[in-house]
Write a protein that binds this DNA or RNA. Structure first.
Length: 588
DNA sequence: GCCGTTTTCGGCCCGACTGTTTTCAGTCG
C-alpha cells in the first residue's frame, strides 16, 4: 500500500472527530456518531502510528478495540490517498462554518441545524444579525431568552477560546477552595474533573462538596471574588463563570455518596461510560449517588461512600485519577497490572537548568544551594550553546571555564554532585552547535531544537535523529517544541526519533515547564513502550524553578510511568551506569 | 459504527438544569 507521508494518528483522529460533528449535525444515529468519536480518541491515544500497523502484513487495524471493519477501511484510505470520499460528501452537504456555531454555550447540533435549515445561518456574524433582527425567537423551541443567550454566547465564543494550562487552573482551584473553606458546614471539598486527572490543559473546574447546608454553600460559592455571574443553579448543582471566562461547577452531595460522586465528577466521560457498562453487566447501576443493585423497578443502594467501594463493586481495584482516560486502565486493573505511578519524592536530581552564564537568573552556587535545599543528590548545569544568541549562549571557551568552576565546587561538596552539562543546539542545517571534542568532556549533554521550527517533517526528524546518533548526546530536550496555546509542536516523526533513541540507548526529556510539558502523556507512554528512559526536567531559569517538577511528574503519571521508567529517580551511581550504557553503545 | 463465553441482532451510561413547554427536548458533563 502506498502511504501518504503526513497522515499521522492525530490527523486521522481529527478527520473522525470532524465526521462525528458533521453526522451529528445531520441527526445521524447517535451511536454511530459515538463510534467515530470513540475511534478518534482511541487512535489519538494509540502508542504506534496507524501507518506502522498498515505496513505490517501480520497485523490488522481491526484488532484495536473500537476499530471495526468500517473505520479500518477508512484509516487505510486516509493513509494511502490522504483523503476520504465520505468526508468530502459530508462537507458538500454541510458548510464547515456552521460547526463554529457549536462553540456557543448552549448550542448543540439540533439547534444549529434548525438555524441553518430555517434561517440559512452558517456563521457567527449571520447568527448575530438574525438575533438582532429578532428572527431567531420566531423559531419553534427558541424564544426571546434564547436569543439573548445566543448574543451573549457569541461574544464569549469570540473572546474566550483556549483551554487553560494546568498550572493556571491550579491557582484558581486553590483560591476557590480557600474561599469555600471559610464557609461553615463544609465537611469535605475536592476539586475533581480533568484537573484531578492532571490533564495538561483544563477547560473548566468541577468542585465537589459534602455538606448538609446546601443553600449556604451555594450562596458562598456564588459570592466568589472573581465570579462574573451565575449561569445555572438548581437544588444540587451550581455553575458560575469567572471574569476570565473559566467556568466552575459545584455539586453538593451527602457524605454517603461522596465516593460515587467523586468518581463521576473526576471522569473522564469515557472512563465513566466503561465503568457503568461493567456495572450493567453485573446487574448494577452506577450514578453519582452510588452503586445500586437493580431488582426489577426497585434499586438497592450497595456502595458509594468511597471511590474504592465503587470500583470494588465491579471487581476492580481503585484506579488512580491520572489513568482514567479509557485507555489501558481497565485492562491493567482487571489483570492486577496497574502501575505503581511515580511520585514527586522519587526524583533524586534534575538534569536541565540554566544559570546567569546564559539566560538564568541565579548563579551556579545559588542553583546548587536550591537543589541541596530540595534534597537532591545531583544536578546537571545545562546552559545554552552559542547559537542561542538571545540567551548569550556559551562557546567552547566559556563552557570550559564554567566546567572548571564546577570542578572547583565539586571538590568542596559532600554528598552532592554537579554534572558538567550543556544544552547544545541542534542547528538548522543539521549537526550540533559545539564540536565533538568539547561535548566529549561533558558529563551530560541534552540536545534541543530552538531554530528552524517551521522546517518540514523530514528535515526536523533528520536533525533530531542525527543528534540522537551523536555519541555524546544523552537526551533530547523538549522534543516537540510546543508551547501550550502559543506554539504548535513542530513537525516531527516521534516514532522515528524513539527508534533512534532506543537503538542508541538514549533518553527523552519530559520538560516540566507547565507551558511545555512535552513529551505529552501519549507520546511519553509511547516512549516507555520503546523502553526509553524518561528524564523529568525542570528547565529551571531561577533558584525557585524546581517547583515545576510536580507538573512533569503529574504528566508522567498520566503516561503510566513508574519510578523505574524515569532516569532521574536513580541514585547518581545508577544514573551513571545508564549513561555509560549509551557510551558503550556508541563505542561499538 | 462497534460488539459478542447467555447475543451476528439489538443493544449501546446516566442525571441535572434550562427554556420552552403543559410533559419534554436539548445541552452539558
Amino acid at each position: 500500500m502506498l502511504i501518504v507521508g503526513n497522515m499521522n494518528n492525530a490527523r486521522i483522529a481529527e478527520v473522525f472527530d470532524l465526521i462525528a460533528d458533521l453526522l451529528e449535525f445531520q441527526d445521524a444515529n447517535p451511536f454511530r456518531v459515538r463510534a467515530y468519536r470513540n475511534g478518534a480518541r482511541i487512535i489519538r491515544d494509540f502508542s504506534e502510528p496507524m501507518q506502522a500497523i498498515l505496513a505490517d502484513p501480520d497485523r490488522k487495524l481491526t484488532d484495536i478495540p473500537g476499530v471495526g471493519k468500517d473505520l479500518a477501511e477508512k484509516i487505510g484510505t486516509l493513509c494511502s490517498t490522504g483523503g476520504l470520499p465520505m468526508l468530502e460528501e459530508l462537507q458538500a452537504q454541510v458548510p464547515q462554518s456552521v460547526l463554529t456555531l457549536l462553540r456557543i454555550p448552549g448550542m448543540g447540533p439540533k439547534k444549529v441545524a434548525m438555524l441553518y435549515k430555517e434561517l440559512h445561518v452558517a456563521t457567527l456574524d449571520q447568527l448575530r444579525d438574525a438575533c438582532q433582527q429578532q428572527k431567531v425567537r420566531k423559531l419553534k423551541g427558541f424564544a426571546a431568552k434564547t436569543e439573548e443567550a445566543i448574543l451573549a454566547g457569541i461574544a464569549l465564543a469570540q473572546t474566550s477560546g483556549d483551554r487553560m494550562c494546568w498550572a493556571g487552573a491550579d491557582s484558581y482551584a486553590q483560591s476557590i477552595r480557600a474561599h469555600m473553606l471559610d464557609c461553615k458546614g463544609i465537611e469535605k471539598i475536592e476539586v475533581a474533573g480533568s484537573y484531578r486527572r492532571g490533564k495538561d490543559t483544563i477547560g473548566d473546574l468541577d468542585l465537589l462538596v459534602v455538606s448538609s447546608k446546601v443553600e449556604d454553600v451555594m450562596d458562598r460559592f456564588a459570592d466568589f471574588t472573581d465570579s462574573a455571574g451565575v449561569i445555572a443553579r438548581g437544588p444540587t448543582k451550581i455553575t458560575i463563570r469567572l471574569v476570565n471566562g473559566l467556568q466552575v461547577d459545584m455539586r453538593v452531595v451527602p457524605a454517603g455518596c461522596f465516593g460515587a460522586a467523586l468518581v463521576y465528577f473526576t471522569g473522564s466521560k469515557d472512563h465513566n461510560i466503561v465503568l457503568r457498562g461493567l456495572a450493567k453487566d453485573r446487574g448494577l447501576k452506577i450514578n453519582e449517588y452510588g452503586v445500586f443493585r437493580v431488582h426489577g423497578s426497585k434499586e438497592e443502594f450497595i456502595a458509594g461512600r468511597t471511590e474504592e467501594e465503587v470500583y470494588k463493586s465491579v471487581d476492580l481495584p481503585w484506579i488512580p485519577p491520572e489513568l482514567r482516560e479509557a485507555r489501558h486502565e481497565f485492562e491493567w486493573a482487571r489483570s492486577g497490572k496497574l502501575p505503581k505511578l511515580i511520585e514527586l519524592d522519587d526524583l533524586c536530581g534534575d538534569l536541565h537548568m540554566h544559570t546567569t552564564a546564559t539566560d538564568g537568573k541565579a548563579t551556579l552556587e545559588e542553583m546548587v544551594a536550591a537543589a541541596r535545599a530540595r534534597g537532591f543528590e545531583y544536578i546537571a548545569i545545562t546552559d545554552h550553546s552559542k547559537r542561542v544568541t538571545m540567551a548569550r549562549g556559551l562557546d567552547a571557551a566559556r563552557l570550559r571555564q564554567q566546567w572548571k568552576e564546577i570542578d572547583r565546587l565539586n571538590r568542596k561538596l559532600k554528598d552532592f554532585r554537579i554534572l558538567k552539562g550543556v544544552e547544545v543546539d541542534i542547528l538548522e542545517k543539521g549537526g550540533l552547535d559545539l564540536q565533538d571534542d568539547v561535548l566529549a568532556e561533558a558529563d551530560w549533554v541534552v540536545a534541543s531544537v530552538h531554530y528552524g521550527q517551521n522546517q518540514s517533517r523530514e528535515q526536523i526528524t533528520k536533525r533530531v535523529v542525527d543528534a540522537l546518533e551523536n555519541p555524546h548526546v544523552r537526551a533530547i530536550a523538549h522534543p516537540t517544541g510546543r508551547l501550550i496555546n502559543r506554539r504548535k509542536p513542530y513537525e516531527i516523526d516521534l516514532d522515528a526519533a524513539f527508534k533512534a533513541a532506543r537503538d542508541n540507548n538514549k533518553m527523552m526529556e519530559l520538560n516540566a515547564n507547565p507551558a511545555r510539558l512535552d513529551l505529552d502523556d501519549v507520546a511519553c507512554a509511547a516512549a516507555k513502550s520503546f523502553g526509553i528512559p524518561i528524564v523529568i526536567s525542570s528547565d529551571s531559569h531561577s533558584a525557585d524553578g524546581f517547583h515545576v517538577l510536580r507538573y512533569g511528574v503529574l504528566q508522567a503519571r498520566r503516561a503510566g510511568l513508574t519510578k523505574k521508567d524515569v532516569a532521574n529517580t536513580r541514585s547518581l551511581e545508577k544514573l551513571n551506569e545508564l549513561i555509560a550504557k549509551g557510551r558503550q553503545k556508541a563505542a561499538r
